[in-house]
């Protein structure tokens, strides 16, 4: 699936988007998997209360299922308007 990062999450991880092969079944499992990769992921995902997640371009929670999902995006709380 495609994993996207925005704002400071993108800056900390260092890329806007990557393809991830995973057997994770929930967003939380995907996060745990990414955190074991490299320190920059661990730093970016260290405080999940400071992060929001969208699955297939809809806002959701970290316990959301990844079944059939094509795109997951991580970003800080939004500051529109």
């Amino acid at each position: 699936m495609d994993v996207l990062y925005f704002a400071w999450v993108r800056e900390r991880i260092g890329i806007p988007k990557e393809k991830v092969e995973t057997s994770a079944t929930t967003v939380m499992q995907l996060v745990e998997e990414l955190k074991t990769r490299e320190e920059r992921y661990e730093v970016a995902f260290s405080d999940l209360s400071a992060l929001r997640v969208a699955v297939d371009q809809e806002l959701t929670d970290f316990d959301a299922s990844l079944d059939g999902v094509r795109e997951v995006a991580f970003f800080p709380p939004m500051t529109g308007g």
Binding site: F6, A7, A54, L59, F75, P76, P77, M78, T79, G80, G81
Partner: peptide, 11 residues
């Protein structure tokens, strides 16, 4: 809702 539910980030 635009403030906190629309995916924009200001720098």
């Amino acid at each position: 809702y635009l403030k906190s539910r629309a995916p924009f980030w200001k720098k």
